[in-house]
Amino acid sequence: MELQVAKQKQPSLRKKPRLTLSPEKSPFLYLLPLAIFMGIMVVYPVGRVIYLSFTQNLLTRPDLGIQFIGVENYITLFTSTEFWSTVLRTTVWTLLSVGGKIFIGFSIAWLLSKNIGFKKLYMLLLMIPWVTPMVVAAVAWRWLYDGQFGMINYILTQVNIIQEPIIWLGNKQSAFIATAVTDIWIGVPFMAMMFLAGLQSIPVELQESANMDGANELQQLFLIVLPVIKPIVLVATTLSAIWTFNSFGVIWPLTRGGPVDATQTLIVEAYKRSFGSFDMGMGAAIAVVIFLILLFFTVLYKRLLMKQEEM
């Protein structure tokens, strides 16, 4: 009985929002176009890909149609060694690339945060690779890696690191490294700029007092700089990891996942299954796995952002 009384009282205490469509008071009309668009272009495709992942749907055999087969695609996927080696390859490739971006990006940011001349010039020059479209970067690197006349071969033979030209993109190990190097090259400017923004937020007094206490460069880096910019590093790293994991525009123009499957990441694999061999069910199952991995990283990213705002 008491409970009911309390319930009845509530409306008078808190103003309950009236259901209205008026643009004065309700967000409804402002959100409607976005909601409709996202419903059709995002929610439906996600639902569709989840549904397809439980079916057998070979576009090369239209006579079979779409057959519901339960979790069979997932069982086939998780029991195949090829799938796990693709997962491993994607992980190593992403770690290698993100690691390279952090290392070079941080080096640039740290050096530029010092009191040196030509700072503006360096930052301007850093913009050039940043604005280069991914496909353009991939095509340019393809020319650099050219097995006969590429500039990389020329320079490395000149300084006697290699004796004769290497077909960089035609060899399994070198193609793996080469695609990662290209991806690093594309991602460095973003990293450097993020880190620089973080480094510039460190109070000058903090560094000065460390200087007076006689801390050397390395001590300053590990004891003062890194702890202060840790939140920015985490946010930038998570974002970069997501983008790197998603990378299609680098690998496809460079190697199309080859030679054999040396540079075949999960993204390339999903594309090839759906639009190369037209096995929509299997392609969808891989896409769902990708979806879940990205969901995990997004939740992580959101948490990091929230933590940072609390500070």
Partner: peptide, 13 residues
Amino acid sequence: VTQMFSPVVLIVG
């Protein structure tokens, strides 16, 4: 979340 999606997730649909 959708911002982080790989296009591969949506492209079949």
